[in-house]
Design a protein around this nucleic acid. Structure first.
Lengths: 170, 170
DNA sequence: ATAACCATGTAAATGGTTACATGATTAG
DNA sequence: CTAATCATGTAACCATTTACATGGTTAT
């Protein structure tokens, strides 16, 4: 599941530009389980276009730069479904500097620990608030499920940190 | 926080070989927030040695291949603390094929969804069981905190999936 | 016999981020 | 006037995985 297939998936949800895709992974429905920068998105779109999995419409706009709106083709849909159906999803990859640093709490100043905890908690608060405001009434079950899972994890993490952070400063 | 500093951190916890470090990130205390293969560990150890942050003892063993046991030096300790203290931990990186695939549940066969869910739940069960068996009585507060956070997240995820998976098959 | 464990290491390939390059419009 | 948003793209760089190379021991 690399940037290429993730771009195809997003375009399958709705027509999108490279810029839209970035927002999708940065702030949107994929933000809690995927990340990608322009530097990997634009080349991926080019490859998908070359393979015939997406098509491109150039949209001219007033007061804004022109954009390339990509749509999925029928071959693209077939390819996406095939990729989704291959039943060996790679195991999750997580890399958390936060956990690594706090593992060594004994080597840190209390003030620094407090900062890390505070930042993390306000980060979760923001995320949770945003996600709770999302309107999913029209979203398909899969999107709802994944959204709920992300929310459940954020809440559990925030809760655990709130209840156990004091133990780090003694 | 790359493989180099993570290796240094592990060696700071206790003397270790490259092989030990792999186990640490694969099954040990770092397994829920970091990953690394031999291909990045061994070169990182060489760099740490060149920089004088670790020292190496060659241990000959009967019936087993000789091993290189690395220890942290005083310069290494200083470097580790400096790295930990720089207060801008990068935000967590997560990549989950599981979430990506289930986002598109509508495009999948029910049987396939069931398989994905079952595998994921038994994976969590194993992880949770192992972590609950870990003896942390002698572990420092930081290690306990991070361990507890990982456990809380796994439990919340497993719980959410158990309670909501049926909605995906309708 | 055969797989798993112990143990180290390199080279090629992969995949990604960061920095650069460009530029108009709008909101504070 | 300054920052943010819209919008696309490339090139250099970076980090990591995968595959290869080696080989004895132990448990099934």
């Amino acid at each position: 599941m690399d940037t290429e297939i993730v771009c195809l998936g997003i375009i399958a949800v709705e027509k999108a530009t490279g810029y839209d895709i970035r927002k999708f992974v940065e702030e949107g429905p994929f933000s809690h389980f995927y990340a990608a920068e322009y530097g990997s998105i634009y080349p991926a779109l080019k490859r998908l276009l070359d393979k015939g999995f997406i098509s491109c419409d150039l949209i001219e706009q007033e007061g804004k730069p022109s954009k390339k709106l990509y749509s999925i083709t029928s071959e693209g849909k077939i390819h996406l479904i095939q990729q989704l159906a291959q039943s060996d999803p790679k195991k999750d990859k997580v890399r958390s500097d936060f956990c690594f640093i706090l593992f060594f709490a004994e080597l840190l100043a209390s003030d620094h620990i407090d900062d890390l905890i505070d930042n993390r908690l306000s980060h979760y608060d923001e995320k949770i608030k945003k996600m709770e405001e999302d309107d999913l009434s029209d979203a398909p079950q899969g999107a709802k499920f994944v959204h709920g899972l992300g929310l459940a994890i954020y809440k559990a993490a925030a809760n655990y940190i709130q209840e156990n952070a004091t133990k780090l400063n003694e």
